[in-house]
């Protein structure tokens, strides 16, 4: 498994709603106003992106920005109007229905905002449902479902119906269900936004724990920027159906590609986002003194040590090797605001 292998690849994806979307001629320059004139609405506009194996891409944007539509296009819950979506090199738009079902049964899992649990089945039966669909025998699917439920911390609640569980517990069932078939690709559509803030935090931690245990390609939708920054390898920011910028959290914060993204990131506590490594200057023969700081930590996490440090250039290390130098003044500016 190579880190650079592309698992999902979108090229010029459009999803247009309206009476006759197929009759439209869509080019990268087509504007919303032109579509609106023919009473069509573009939920996804000319999106191209690649998601690599093992990567976690967070798609974020305000409600109505098309992020949920995009993820449904990736899973072909919606047929796209134009463009291509390839999963592991296969154009999913061209799959026959049995092939698509096969793909979903083997490769994909999805978690939904309002859980999408079947009200007439117990937690256990909900989790076993995808296994049942692919024809697994009863004993083994029940065993597997128990195992996954235990993994998400719901041991003892197997016989409960969704109605009898709290929101957080229901979403744990949703997560367990999406993991039951051991998918390679995991879609999460605003999984925590229907939950109370406290539970949300707890579920995010739970999610990070699971993510650490399972190596999966993850597409995570959220409208909560903090959540995105906390979880993402890369972030795609969407507005009006188009991707404004797709980049690492540090780059999004430090180098917003458009005024919209800049505005989005304005109120963010950058120190909590930017990793020391993102500020690293090349060594270029400058002297490296003393113990290095870890490049993978955020400035916020290193704040105490940076403030207490007296070096002008602090060395940074990545996996035990010196990877660059941190300009202490630049770091302090970010942490405390520019000196007046």
């Amino acid at each position: 498994m190579t880190a650079s292998e592309v698992v999902i690849s979108c090229r010029n994806v459009w999803k247009v709603f309206g009476d006759y979307p197929d009759r439209l001629r869509l080019t990268p320059d087509t504007t919303m106003d032109e579509l609106r004139a023919t009473s069509h609405i573009a939920a996804v506009r000319n999106v191209s992106l690649d998601i690599r194996r093992g990567e976690m891409l967070v798609v974020m944007g305000l409600s109505g920005s098309g992020k949920s539509t995009l993820v449904r296009c990736l899973a072909r819950l919606l047929d796209i109007t134009s463009g291509t979506v390839e999963v592991e090199g296969r154009d999913i738009g061209k799959l026959t229905e049995p092939q698509l079902i096969e793909l979903r049964r083997k490769k994909m899992g999805m978690v939904f905002q309002s859980f999408g649990l079947l009200p007439h089945r117990t937690a256990l039966e909900n989790v076993a449902f995808p296994l049942e669909m692919r024809g697994q025998d009863r004993a083994s699917r029940i065993a597997r479902a128990r195992e996954v439920l235990e993994l998400v911390g719901l041991k003892g609640r197997e016989g409960y119906f969704p109605r009898e569980l709290s929101g957080g517990q229901q979403q744990r069932v949703g997560i367990a269900r999406s993991l039951a078939v051991e998918p390679d690709i995991w879609f999460l559509d605003e999984p925590f936004s229907a939950l109370d803030p406290l539970i949300r935090r707890e579920m995010q931690d739970e999610f990070l724990r699971l993510k650490g245990m399972l190596a999966k390609t993850i597409v995570f939708i959220t409208h909560d920027f903090d959540e995105a920054l906390r979880l993402a390898d890369r972030i795609a920011i969407m507005k009006d159906g188009a991707v404004e910028q797709i980049d690492t959290p540090d780059r999004i914060v430090m180098a917003p590609a458009t005024p919209y993204v800049a505005k989005f990131t304005e109120s963010i506590d950058r120190a909590r986002v930017i990793h020391a490594g993102a500020l690293a200057l090349p060594v270029d023969g400058r002297p490296v003194e003393g113990d290095p700081l870890p490049a993978g930590e955020t400035l916020h996490a290193l704040a105490r040590r940076i403030v207490g440090d007296s070096r002008v250039l602090i060395p940074l290390s990545t996996q035990g090797r010196i990877s660059g130098l941190l300009d202490r003044k630049a770091a302090l500016d970010l942490l405390l605001g520019p000196a007046t």
Partner: peptide, 8 residues
């Protein structure tokens, strides 16, 4: 959708 994603 959850049903579809379960491969029904």
């Amino acid at each position: 959708e959850s049903g579809k994603m379960s491969g029904t």
